[in-house]
Design a protein around this nucleic acid. Structure first.
Lengths: 228, 228
DNA sequence: GTCTATAGCGCGATAGAC
DNA sequence: GTCTATCGCGCTATAGAC
């Protein structure tokens, strides 16, 4: 997001014969408008996917006209990139719970809890990411090949360290992370399915707490981190 | 699928002044054409989602003209329904591995293996289903509220029976099934992401065998079914 | 039954008034 | 900066020849 905003910010005309105060006002309203449109993009892209979403619906969701959306983001694709950029950082950040100086049970429980919290708090972003991956991940390729790969290898080493020091079962870190990502994100991704099958709101606080406990129990015990 | 095909079959005009032999030939070519188009629908819908897919691309994939696609399926939406119908049965069928007369470790290991096999064999169908669920599950609502709910409650009882007889840890069956679905399907759903991150083909036979072993180990042990 | 050609329209994007 | 009005493309769906 940040790059996107800065890029456009730099290329926009500036008022030259007006007061600094006025300029600041404009900057503030720019920010508000941008935030509104990005938020709307999150919701609508998360609901409909890239092709299913229309700029008209995004504009309506943001409470502005279609032309205004195109004023801030030249193309639909630009807006989509802007929205995606936000999720990448949060995604990478949560993995910092996995640290070698922690006990594996503690670190992994925190990571799982954090991912679940995130699915509950930002279901649209989670779904948006899922749609992107499902449809070939073309737009997020650079991030996956760069940041993701790097972080995964770094955190994989932490897991292998825990295994080497006999703290947990010898489980391939890559598959372990895939498991954690899948089990946590599924609560946002398949919310509609869960509601239809169980009759309960999948992102309800109580339901999610129970889910978190279950996932934590199965995974931690499955790794040999709970003995009982 | 079957309903769809039968419905359309019944409503189509029949040759009246031609031989039975000719009629049979027509029926056979009808079946072939239908199968080609449905298979193409699977691939293209699985690749692009409903809105991203175009009837032109489906026609090309099937090796027929756009008009021919519309001849067999009046609307794009009809074809989509036809494709979805196929996945529902397989989905429900795999759960039959979970039976009260089996040992839980055996039954669940088989079920997990079956789901993984399925993800490897029919990645397009798996992705198609995922896209459908992600975008609100409107089109599969009847199936979810009917068959899915019914099966889940039946199989949930099996799990609870195992728990009651002290064979496994007291884990909520619903969340357990969500875990199994998420961890197995993710290999088809996030194939693109996995390739970018690991540099390996996520649906490769060896990679998948390792994944199956890892998932089985963690889940079975996590349920108290492996003691070591 | 399958094709080519085209109707009809929804959508992304832009021009231009305010 | 935000709007209304509109352009023009690309898509679904159909008409009609073979």
């Amino acid at each position: 997001m940040t790059e996107q905003m800065l890029d456009r910010g730099r290329s926009l005309p500036r008022a030259k014969d007006t007061s600094q105060r006025n300029h600041n006002l404009h900057v503030a309203s720019r920010k508000r408008a941008l935030a509104k449109i990005l938020k709307a993009g999150e919701v609508v892209f998360g609901r409909r996917g890239f092709d299913g979403a229309t700029t008209a619906e995004i504009a309506k969701e943001a409470g502005v006209s279609k032309a205004t959306v195109h004023y801030y983001f030249k193309t639909k694709s630009d807006l989509h990139k802007g929205v995606l950029d936000r999720i990448l950082n949060v995604w990478a950040d949560a993995l910092n719970e996995v640290r070698a100086d922690r006990e594996p049970a503690d670190a992994l429980a925190r990571y799982i809890a954090r991912k679940m919290e995130y699915a509950r708090k930002y279901p649209e972003l989670t779904r948006l990411w899922a749609i992107e991956v499902l449809s070939g991940a073309k737009r997020i390729q650079p991030f996956l090949r760069g940041t993701s790969r790097q972080i995964l290898s770094k955190k994989g080493k932490v897991i292998r360290h825990w295994i080497a020091t006999g703290k947990m079962d010898p489980i391939d870190p890559t598959h372990l992370f895939f498991m954690i990502w899948a089990t946590t994100q599924t609560y946002a991704e398949t919310e509609a399915q869960m509601i239809s099958i169980t009759g309960k709101d999948a992102l309800d606080k109580v339901f999610m707490r129970k889910a978190t406990n279950t996932i934590s129990h199965v995974i931690l015990k499955g790794l040999g981190l709970i003995k009982v």
